[in-house]
Amino acid sequence: MKTSTLLTALAAVGAAISAVFAGPSGASADLRVVATVADLGTLAREIGGSHATVTILALPTQDPHFVDARPNLALELSRADLLLTVGLDLEVGWLPTLQIGARNGRIQRGAQGFLDCSGLVTTLEVPSGPIERSMGDIHPGGSPHYTLDPRAMENVARGIARRMGELDVPNAAEYRGRADAFIGRLRAHRARWEQTLAPLRGAPVIGYHRSWAYLASWLGVRVVEHLEPRPGIPPTPAHVARVLAIARRDAVRLILQEAYYADRTARVIEERSGARLVRIAGGADFAGGQSYIQRIDQMVRALSRAWQRAESASAATR
């Protein structure tokens, strides 16, 4: 029968392939870590040192809400020992497909190789009262954009180190040590960053997407309005006009927007008010080897530059 011939052929091909590749697929580093986003990936790289190989699923230039579940990502997950996720439904539209396709019990939800990092932070913007999608694409568990607050990332670093130590016991002390060293450096930089951005404290800013709760809580800025009328709904002319009026009325200096969104509407506000647009990278430049501290440093410098430009422009018109 043709059927049995085909099945036999498939089995034979399969056996041959597995014989050839069984060797290399074994472990090379002690721990294979996959992070859904670059900020968690760069943290894992920092903590894992030479004991971990880290890959990421969503590029920092990409909106992490809408990632294609490309099968090569499932392949990464099939070989992973630890999966780090942002959680709070950020990856709900694509990660489950990849997890199932990976056929890897170690990184399924509930397993030790699955770490939802949102459990390590105090979440903000948790909706109170009944919620529904008429409110836009809201996150029922709270805002998932906590990687922008270096204070929140301290505990994330500790949690990642702890979990790596549980999975790779011989190197546990080293993971802990690297996390502590990272936190020490982060604190030193944070003091400097806070000093640089002290003038922003209390300042009104405009956001594009509702991504800034944690950054605002850290820097003490007030997000007075968003360009998206509701999370996930693109700006409409009437809404943009309203935002422009607010920008003028409150003398807003900064517009915060993730670099993966088109900046046309934000530019309109920038041209017609005293506000300056700051395009903030969606994550660390992971492929380029950027560390988390370098990434936040870059953001702080961009914020500071834009603030100064807005201040001097406003001084000139006065």
Partner: peptide, 15 residues
């Protein structure tokens, strides 16, 4: 045995 330990802290808004 798999699910046992989780180092996660509680999340105020989790369902």
């Amino acid at each position: 045995t798999e699910g046992g330990t989780s180092s996660s802290a509680s999340t105020a808004g989790s369902p």
